[in-house]
Design a protein around this nucleic acid. Sequence first.
DNA 1: AGCTCTTATGAATCATTGA
DNA 2: GTCAATGATTCATAAGAGC
Lengths: 303, 303
Amino acid sequence: MKATLYQGDCLEVLKHMPDESVDLIFTSLPYADRRKNVYGGVHPDHYVEWFLPRAREFYRVLKEDGSFVLNIKERVVEGERHTYVIELILALKKQGWLWVEEYIWHKKNCYPGKWPNRFRDAWERLLHFTKSKKFKMFQEEVMVPIGDWSEKRLSKLGQKDLVRLNSASRSGFGKRIANWLGKELVYPTNVLHLPTECTLKGHSAVFPVELPQWFIKLFTQSGDTVLDPFVGSGTTCVASLRLGRNCIGIDIKREYIDLAEERIKKEVGTLMQVQVIEVGREVNKGSSKSSLDYFAGNMALRS
Amino acid sequence: MKATLYQGDCLEVLKHMPDESVDLIFTSLPYADRRKNVYGGVHPDHYVEWFLPRAREFYRVLKEDGSFVLNIKERVVEGERHTYVIELILALKKQGWLWVEEYIWHKKNCYPGKWPNRFRDAWERLLHFTKSKKFKMFQEEVMVPIGDWSEKRLSKLGQKDLVRLNSASRSGFGKRIANWLGKELVYPTNVLHLPTECTLKGHSAVFPVELPQWFIKLFTQSGDTVLDPFVGSGTTCVASLRLGRNCIGIDIKREYIDLAEERIKKEVGTLMQVQVIEVGREVNKGSSKSSLDYFAGNMALRS
DNA sequence: AGCTCTTATGAATCATTGA
DNA sequence: GTCAATGATTCATAAGAGC
């Protein structure tokens, strides 16, 4: 198993990666923002044009039977849901992607708040794109244990029981796992119930590790390669390594690469290797020199 | 309270309804289908153009502070999710609608099934459109018991109590539970957990009465008027009447109007009145005569 | 170990204020 | 005016402390 981290804009970094070398791309897009100086701050109105050239690289490096899973949710802009996400779906289809499915991540502990015109937003999209109608999918790997007892309750009971069910099905370490032993396995649905990550000590991950874990189990096998082009704090890499998949993480921010490296090292212990390849900071600042030169010139193995 | 049913294409029927006379439009769109003999069978590729002129009438009859809630889910066509729903959102925005929010209906007991490339579809969209940024919303009406309390309480109750508690809550979306709790209520999120309705025969796309009920409580007051232009078996009307709202139901199929009428009469008993206004069947078959003539000529009070 | 209680926090929005 | 920053609002969860 190998984890490789690149610091740089994935648009540039990916150009040095061979065709059809990745089995799954899982990522959460940088947040669209109206302010320009924020990290990943791309104005919603320009989001699609910003993303498309990167998606083209994703398409190139993804294997023919691979999957691209995009975690995204549109912001509210001036009282309305912005349309950049659904415009993105249409644009990606024009680029050749197949929009196979839209999974829902139900965020059990969503951000609180009260507004006169809407409730708390408790869900995000997980858009599933592929290059081909025949893609790899290992449905048995994410089956959920369920028995007569729970089946009856599922159809009748409310939110609290859904919570309990899914905490049991998360990574197999739910408190009530004893209840599921010996029960029959059933396939899940396209709705995932997971809490958001709220760690006390910094290191705020955007999504819980169970989220990429679920899709990695579903769309890859042991030894496959997972790519996260906006790797952030490295949650996708952690999930990959736990499941015995190689992973490649890219992020434009040096501090995130450092953070991801730290988390990965803590995760894998001594058995696996972690490589960090740095790309000169000039690339990020939009130097006049071609980024290719910087990539070649400033690559350095750190660990 | 008054319930009025019209038989005819809502495009024609609505032309005889005054401007800004409706507080809420709640409907579940006829299923897009490639087969033409199915009810509401509009080909996905022509769905938007079919819907837009009707949506224009919706806009006209809706009050300035009213809401339009559309229950819809795109079909799978040739292995992909079709894009007609997201294209519809963009088209409605061009028509002047504000896309305020997208609620999710999580179908707890969705239909079983297995496909090689996807799981069971357990969710549908509830698209919320308005004419103005300042629309009516009565958030207190749909508050739910606080989670922590409920969790603790439920764990202390026995199995039988759980079932009884829940079946009692189905008629009022947790309101009865709320009464038992007495105090601590919180605002819900934009994810609704409801089972699908399995009892009704002969109607393909059925939603539970709790679904329109929730939005009727949220966006209207007692005495307001609710419109369902594709009323089907009349679930929206039943919900409206239970909550003391007037309702107008339209459907192109005579058998559905009959079914809705039957359900409504059973629901309201003797206190309220039900009117069924028939529009000549020729309208539905695309007669060369103008539908206006038929409407005027064939209107008949049935009960 | 278990169990209860307390507390920090999270890819949020809207209204208001200030430049 | 337009744009940016600040304050008010709000709740499920996990970690940590105490017993």
